[in-house]
Nucleic acid binder design. Structure first.
Lengths: 322, 322
DNA sequence: ATGAAAGCGCTAACAA
DNA sequence: TTGTTAGCGCTTTCAT
């Protein structure tokens, strides 16, 4: 009775003054429902888990906030897990489910395979919403990676560049192939020839970016611009360029996808494409909640707001042809 | 009975074969105790909360791992909170306590004041262990900041520098004053005169570091080396130096405290002092658990392992006197 | 329209 | 040494 009033049960018929009286007393007593008792009675944990490869990657910052905000609205707790910490043998995720500690997952798989196994193990027990990747027959939310890469490439094209390389992600990453597609699209729409050897599968780490840059800059014919699929890799590209004695942006323009605080710490500051990571986090939880109440999995693409170019110092007009 | 066997209650006398039988059946059934029921019965959440100013600061990475590892051993869940997200009016922390969702906090206060209020509100309801700062009459764990700064300074001294500046932290940060002390100690032990204007209170952000560097490098008499109290600020110092057309390490050596993956992404790579952040995280939880079982607050300094100098490319021998 | 009571899964106290 | 049971605080069904 009291419980239903406090939880604003719409199906309950109660006199207005009773409602008020109950609520008044409750707030006077500073009443707060005990979480464990609720969880036990309702047999759900009111907790969701966000699992990302590395929680301290600034790219996750915004997404994490989105997840937290949306969860907070629904009165859900969020447990942060790092998938890189998951040993193949440690079925941490499974244990969480078995103990009834979490109701579902928002999961970003890393390039490593192990997580997929963990995912398998939990997927038929509780709902899982995939982030940054489509799965088979489960919910997912991804960004407009293709549009972002296209935007980045068009920016370089507009500056007069035609010798544009792409430093892409690792092979298993779906984001990588979508971003490659956006790059390719922009190039062909501008009728600019694309050299196959100028698209290099690197990785999303500074070291991978550095090696890719050095590789591309060691060729007899150098690109004058690079679209880098990930800002952390771009940090490495900047470094590789410097080591190759190539000046950014005078001799080489660099645009990266994702905009974090690191973009303004470099010299020159990085031109980037900002992605709606916050919204992705919110949508992930929203969808998980929907699944929890019985709805079917959806695959959504966040298009609002769209990717936006943040012009800084690492891009400039194409150098004159020698 | 069964419960006590599974929880390995040492005070229980039971026949060996009964124990085995119970355990065998339990594992065969894949039995896992329900978390909510335990929490309700035991009236504690088996959850601790780690609150840091900004969870995506790489400096917290290791500490977070330490917290997770120690919590995992004790079967505790960890809830990550960001104190920067805490609006003064939002008593999120308080709500967590009122709902019985967390048993205690490992709390790193930011320079901002608000958190202290939040802290006040929760401190007499559940135990709080402070990180990076001493509090009055509550547990705390800090690092050997003085030793770290001294080590950094001695490294510069050993390279022949005498014109050494200190880019310190914001005034309210206890870490800042401890690090200043270490710098001062190294200087006076080496009988090197310390200019008061060369110790500048900046902040732990790249922008603060950049401004401090530009300020110091705009003086008629420039330092040839800087001890930077925080690696993120050091990112800005590197940038400020470049903007001031001062070459690192040829004209200016830079050492920073804390060693994160960012240290190798810069050009030149940063020489740093690595701090035992992982151990600090573990100790924080260990102490919180002790408090939960009734022990009194302690103030501990992590000295094992000690701070260690990681020499990279941003420090070099002092330039010859003009 | 409101009050009473059962029961979620566990642990600890008590009986046998 | 082992089995039985009350009760943690909540929600929800069933009486009133």
């Amino acid at each position: 009775m009291v419980s239903r009033i406090l939880n604003n049960d719409p199906r309950l018929r109660a006199r207005e003054d009773t409602r008020d009286r109950v609520k008044a007393v409750a707030s006077q007593l500073g009443y707060m429902p005990n979480h464990a008792a609720r969880a036990l009675r309702l047999s759900h944990a009111e907790t969701v888990s966000l699992v990302v490869p590395d929680a301290t990657n600034p790219i996750f910052s915004e997404m994490f906030r989105g997840v937290e905000d949306e969860a907070d609205i629904a009165g859900l707790q969020v447990l942060l897990g790092q998938s890189l910490d998951l040993r193949p043998d440690s079925n941490l995720l499974r244990r969480l489910v078995d103990q009834g500690r979490v109701d579902g997952f928002v999961l970003q798989v890393s390039a490593r395979q192990e997580v997929h196994e963990a995912e398998q193990a939990i997927a038929d027990r509780v709902p899982v919403v995939l982030i940054h990747a489509r799965g088979q027959r489960r919910g997912s939310v991804i960004l407009d990676d293709e549009g972002a890469a296209q935007l980045a490439t068009e920016h370089l094209l507009a500056l007069g560049h035609t010798d544009i390389a792409m430093v892409s992600g690792p092979v298993p990453a779906q984001t990588a192939s979508r971003r490659e597609k956006g790059y390719a699209r922009a190039m062909s729409e501008a009728h600019v020839r694309r050299r196959p050897t100028w698209t290099v599968k690197a990785g999303y780490s500074p070291e991978a970016g550095r090696q890719a840059a050095r590789h591309l800059l060691s060729k007899p014919r150098r690109p004058t611009a690079m679209v880098v699929a990930n800002i952390n890799a771009a940090l490495g590209v900047l470094k590789g360029a410097r080591e190759s004695k190539v000046s950014v942006p005078d001799e080489l323009s660099v645009v990266a996808i994702h905009d974090t605080w690191l973009a303004t710490t470099t010299f020159p500051e990085l031109t980037t494409v900002r992605m709606p990571l916050y919204q992705m986090g919110r949508e992930g939880v929203r969808q998980l909640i929907a699944r929890l109440s019985g709805q079917r999995p959806e695959d959504v693409v966040i298009t609002d707001p769209p990717p936006v170019l943040v012009e800084r110092e690492s891009t400039a007009e194409a150098p004159r042809r020698r």
